[in-house]
Amino acid sequence: MRLLRSLIAAGAVAALTMSAGSALAESKGKIYYMVPTLLDEFQTESVHALEKFMKDVGYELVTLNADSKTDVQQSQMNDTIILKPKAIILAANDFEALKPSVEKARAAGIPVMIFDRQITSTMSDLTSVAGTVEIGYIAATEIQRLLKEKKGAVKGKVLQVLGDPGDSYTLDIQKGFEEKMKAFPDVTIISKPAMAWEASNAGTIVADQMLANPDIDLIFVHAAHLAVAAVASLEAKGKKPGDVMLVSSNGAPVGLDLIRKGWENVEVEQPLYAQAAALAMFADKVVNKQEIKPGKYSVLGLDSELAIEKWGPNIKIPGAAITKANIDQPKFWGNMKAPTDAVKSVE
């Protein structure tokens, strides 16, 4: 009987300790993450990364998937505002369409952090980006280098395979890329969208264009999973690695795999882990509506610049061009080596 009583008492103490622990872990409350879709690896990994980093600083992350639908994301924002979370993290499907939702949340006293997909037309509480336009810039710089190495000058024909034409993300990359390529009139750019970001659509575009324009020197696709289908089409046309240069963006594992196999030359990395960690580092300040100071911050070892822009504090994490020379660096999220060290809040 005494043993039973001791066991019950021990159980009760353990239960109390556990509940207290869990209460402590959850004491800071919930943050909602509006992920635009879970149909690509960048977004899926962003959920894992944000969950981990937010937990490091004491918040519970709840994720809502908009399934690539702007109206769904708007409804999710409306529903979440009613729940009054500590903050909302938004990766917008459509930058302009979500602007009123951001304003509504902030008017209700809920801070809004912007992840990866920058909204510059209204105020937010913190933006963490590599910059979609900047991805286009990096791609352009690398493509200029590749064309020069191959042809002695920046000239030739580039096939640009966009994602879905209704997605501002791909349009911004296109904008950045074409802006930087304007200086090189000897480069012909053929742009085609892969509807719904669907891989076989990208494969079909590449198959058709390689026949209509057999002198294409380089293919630039806006996501690594599209690069796989592009390679499949090239292979089906009897091409070998290196016959047609290939550049892709987002840094997904399949893109890195294509570089290792020799099919792809450059993958433009979006620093997923650092972008997510930056939000966690400043989460306390955002939730408590404290001032965020501009300056240089080290985010997972990456030197990042925080500036106060007209749309609010904006931390820009440098993206990178992944090539065969640097592909094995663990900082690239495509290597799927998520940081294990805990992120600490900025004091």
Binding site: L39, E198, A199, V228, A232
Partner: peptide, 16 residues
Amino acid sequence: LLAIRTSGATANLGTG
């Protein structure tokens, strides 16, 4: 056939 054509599968394969 779709997997063979695209050398694999993504979560949005065949959409539309």
